[in-house]
């Protein structure tokens, strides 16, 4: 059974027809990339999947249950790390579990056991402002993972980082996937990133966003991926 099903979603936002009949699926342990030009409504789709806004039409099915307009099920991460400046790194990571109803102590202990895997050991009592951009994104990713380890929505998580850090983070995410096997929906406007990280790629059109292509690129070799790259560039 698929993890997330997006069924015929339509949405008009601020009198702008944003999403036109979007349907897609995310299978367990898969990384699905949504690729499209900037401002094409990709983030709106994530807001709908996470339950922040309701679609005009269509449904969100998670694990076979209707989650349309319901929050609190998926982990959501944006380009901005959105760490609270007044909380330590550890508390930032632990807070979502507190929101879920765990005690702060319990949540901290849970968070602590993941610090080394996310390269944050020794920094747990620092404030976000004291960390580098890459570290902050890793902390944000750990927070996302701890909240919902099975479904993560990542909205251009590395877009604000410099090229070197971004590449490191991409490799690190690949490594992370092989260890924890989450299901990931990943938004980007970077074709290279899409081909590097994705098992499947959905290509979105400019507004109103429509799916204009779907590519299965799992386990492909470099030359084969390059072929797809050309195809995608032609599409866009």
């Amino acid at each position: 059974m698929s993890k997330v099903q997006v069924i015929e979603i339509c949405k008009t936002l601020d009198q702008l027809y944003t999403l036109d009949n979007i349907s897609l699926t995310l299978n367990p342990q898969e990384c699905v990339v949504i690729l499209g030009p900037s401002g094409c409504g990709k983030s709106t789709l994530f807001n709908i999947i996470s339950g922040l806004i309701k679609p005009d039409k269509g449904k969100i099915i998670i694990d076979g249950q209707d989650y349309t307009g319901k929050t609190g099920r998926v982990g959501y991460m944006q380009q901005k790390d959105l760490l609270l400046p007044f909380r330590t790194v550890l508390d930032n990571i632990a807070l979502p579990l507190v929101v879920k109803g765990e005690s702060l102590k319990q949540a901290r202990n849970k968070a602590k056991s993941y610090l080394s895997e996310f390269g944050l050991v020794g920094f747990e009592n620092y404030y976000p402002r004291q960390l580098s951009g890459g570290m902050r994104q890793r902390a944000a990713l750990l927070r996302t993972y701890l909240f919902a380890s099975d479904i993560m929505l990542l909205d251009e998580p590395f877009a604000a980082l410099d090229a070197i850090t971004r590449h490191k983070m991409q490799l690190w995410l690949i490594n992370l996937r092989s260890q924890y096997n989450p299901s990931i929906l990943f938004i980007t406007h970077d074709i290279e990133e899409a081909l590097l990280l994705g098992d499947r790629i959905y290509v979105f059109s400019p507004l109103p966003a429509r799916i204009i292509g779907e590519f299965n690129v799992k386990g492909l070799s470099e030359p084969e991926k390059n072929k797809y790259k050309k195809k995608i560039i032609e599409l866009l």
Binding site: N47, S50, G51, L52, T71, G72, R73, V74, Y76, Q78, K80, L82, L84, P85, F86, R87, L95, P96, V98, V99, K100, F147
Partner: peptide, 29 residues
């Protein structure tokens, strides 16, 4: 307060009071 920050906590299913307590109040201090 950054509205995206509020959205993030809403996406986690936090209610208004929790968001005020954990996000808005400390940010406004």
């Amino acid at each position: 307060v950054d509205p995206d920050q509020v959205h993030l906590f809403r996406s986690m299913g936090a209610n208004k009071w929790t968001i005020f307590r954990l996000v808005k109040l400390p940010s406004a201090l």
